[in-house]
């Protein structure tokens, strides 16, 4: 287990070396910040909810279900935001810390949520965005959000997930049609649910490690 000791090495504060202290400080600063910038469980929950929405939309498109987009997406979006508000309260209590990066990451995802909602309404309600462009647009927006999250959190692989979303947007714009619904569902699983699960595991490990620090 990766633990930090708050005891002076060998019980002699005077014998401590600056390298040890700097490494200790760096590790503690990073650990206290990192737990506030992961938040992978949101990706998992939102990812799975959107997967359900995509599946229902695809079934509707294939005439196997008689559901309107509002009926499909309305309850799912409400469920997603309800989970988000509940989880944020719980996280605040569990983590007990707030960081500027964590706050900025929260804003990035809030902006993503609002932009996605506007794009969805622009398609469904105002009908000014063609439905065939939606998958590509959402992939583009997801890319931006993941790239910013990875950059702010200092998690390189998460930033690369953002780049993968942008790359994935290209074929979604090029080859439009009903097949983009299952294709987007696969992308969502690979580029959101799995990364989210990885981050959630790290967060859980981090909180558990902190609780089990040995002196």
């Amino acid at each position: 287990m990766n633990t930090l000791s708050t005891n002076p090495p060998r019980g002699d504060a005077e014998k401590r070396q600056p390298e040890q202290d700097l490494a200790f400080i760096r590790q503690l600063m990073e650990r206290s910040r990192r737990v506030t910038v992961l938040g992978g469980h949101y990706f998992v929950v939102w990812g799975l909810l959107v997967e359900v929405g995509l599946l229902l939309s695809w079934l509707s498109f294939e005439r196997q279900l008689a559901l309107t987009p509002a009926l499909i997406w309305g309850p799912l979006i409400v469920a997603g935001y309800a989970y988000t508000f509940w989880a944020q309260r719980r996280d605040r209590a569990v983590e007990g810390a707030e960081s500027r990066d964590g706050y900025l990451i929260g804003l990035v995802w809030l902006c993503f949520g609002i932009c996605s909602l506007i794009v969805l309404l622009a398609d469904l309600w105002f009908q000014v965005i063609p439905s065939r462009a939606l998958a590509g647009l959402f992939a583009t927006l997801s890319g931006a959000a993941f790239f910013l999250h990875g950059s702010l959190a200092g998690i390189g692989w998460l930033r690369n997930v953002g780049i993968l979303w942008w790359l994935a947007a290209i074929p979604l714009y090029l080859w439009t049609g009903a097949h983009t619904l299952p294709a987007y569902a696969v992308l969502l699983f690979g580029l959101q649910v799995i990364p989210g699960w990885v981050l959630a595991q790290e967060r859980r490990r981090l909180l558990a490690t902190e609780a089990g620090v040995s002196l």
Binding site: T6, A13, F24, A97, S99, Y103, L207, V213
Partner: peptide, 29 residues
């Protein structure tokens, strides 16, 4: 320079603010 106070300062330097229980987890005191 006291090890525990250094840990507290470092833990707080990494975030905007932290509550007592979070600090307790971080520094294990």
């Amino acid at each position: 320079h006291s090890r525990l106070r250094l840990a507290i300062m470092a833990a707080l330097a990494g975030v905007e603010r932290a509550d007592f229980s979070a600090l307790k987890r971080q520094v294990n005191a």
